[in-house]
Amino acid sequence: MNELSQIRQGAFAPANTADMAEAMIAGTGLRIEIDRRRGRGAAINTSGRFEPISRELEDDGWNSLEELPVFKTEVQVEKPRSIISRNDSPDIPFDRSVNPYRGCDHGCIYCFARPTHAYMGLSPGLDFEAKLFAKPDAAKLLERELAKPGYKVRPIAIGTNTDPYQPIEKEWRIMRQILEVLKAADHPVMIVTKSAMVMRDIDILAPMAEKGLAKVGLSVTTLDRKLARLMEPRASTPSKRLEAIKALSEAGIPATVMMSPVIPALNDHEIERVLDSGRTAGATQASYVLLRLPLEVSPLFRDWLLRNYPDRYRHVMSLVRSMRGGKDYDAEFGKRMKGAGPYAWQIGRRFELAAKRLGLNVGKRPLNCDLFVPPLGTGVQLSLL
């Protein structure tokens, strides 16, 4: 009996968090029916880790589960007191970021931001994709924080947690308002997205880039449309992301092709093709991040892998653990982005050789922090000069 058959027949018990996905396959009732979650990345919606009790669906014999509604995107307004988040991580190239939204209906199954939904009393599974939070006051808060006396300029990163150009941005337009504030203040910004919607704001980003104030990274995880649809169900197609790189580049906006994440035995064979396609589209920089499976992301990804690529499950997870010290994830600084061990080393060398061959990552220029003019935000004392 192979591992998948054993899992489906209940031979494995959920001994720890890493084994939860296998238990879900064994019929614990945690899997949401496909008609209710169609178009979503996750198939489960377990309670957040901070909840005092755990809930799961169970039919009462009257086909009650058939009456439950489908998961539709719901947006609540969040009113934070501040909008700039700061960090002192040694392995990321920024010390501050802005997140216009909490949660993301792109539905990327591997998203390392999923566990943050637990802080809202929600599930990192389907809730993360369907119950979103928008911050409509973000631009006003940003203007106020930039206007504070003693503010020291450093590039602000946007899109490092959830995507600022996820579909609800079409209606809320919070990201555009933020860019308008940054443009008016000549403040540098770096954007990460996997959405072609970024092309909408070229009219703002191009003048900023001309002053050395803006650059954009497009995450292109695969060129396989089927894999992309399964892995990132509501994100732009790979061809649309490459189209966005081309449009940004032609407008004079520095573009980076980002292969994030690299998943062993699933998309790592595409490293050279992705970089080559990004360079052809006009990207001048490239980067990658190894698959990260913190907290609830691990069982969610395992469940997804068993549903869509059962024949690769054991191989993928074996390689993941070989690069994470025998675990699904290692959060240690210096290792969490690139991993460790022979297979991780091989991925790194392949990436470096491909980037060098294509002339990527040559002559990096830091964003300009010398042009900043503090905005005259609400409550700021005007100058007497």
Rank of each mutant, 00 (worst) to 15 (best):
R8K: 08
N16W: 03
T17W: 12
D19K: 04
A23S: 10
I25C: 08
G27I: 07
T28A: 06
I32S: 03
E33Q: 13
E33H: 09
D35L: 02
G41K: 10
A42E: 14
N45G: 09
G48F: 06
G61D: 13
F71L: 13
E74Q: 13
Q76P: 00
K79C: 04
R81H: 12
S85M: 06
D88L: 09
D88W: 09
Y110E: 07
L122C: 03
P124H: 07
L126S: 10
L132A: 12
F133E: 02
F133D: 00
A138Q: 04
A138I: 05
L142K: 03
E145A: 13
L146G: 11
R154C: 00
A157S: 15
P164L: 09
Y165I: 04
E169V: 01
R173I: 04
I174D: 09
M175I: 00
I178G: 03
L179T: 04
L179F: 12
L179I: 04
A185N: 12
A185P: 10
A185C: 06
D186C: 02
V189K: 10
V192L: 15
T193H: 07
M197K: 05
I204V: 15
L213Y: 09
K215G: 11
V216K: 14
D224P: 03
R225W: 00
K226W: 04
A228P: 00
A235I: 11
T237A: 15
S239M: 13
S249C: 11
S249K: 10
P254I: 01
I263A: 09
P264M: 07
A265C: 11
G278I: 00
R279H: 13
T284H: 02
Q285H: 13
L290G: 04
L295Q: 14
V297D: 01
P299E: 14
L300R: 02
D303L: 06
D311A: 08
D311P: 00
R312K: 15
M317T: 14
M317K: 02
M317L: 11
L319W: 09
S322F: 08
R324K: 15
G326N: 14
D328P: 01
D328Q: 12
D330R: 11
D330P: 02
A331L: 09
K338L: 05
P342E: 14
A344L: 04
Q346A: 14
I347T: 02
K356F: 01
R357M: 01
R357H: 10
L358S: 06
G359D: 06
G359M: 03
C369L: 02
L376R: 07
L384A: 12
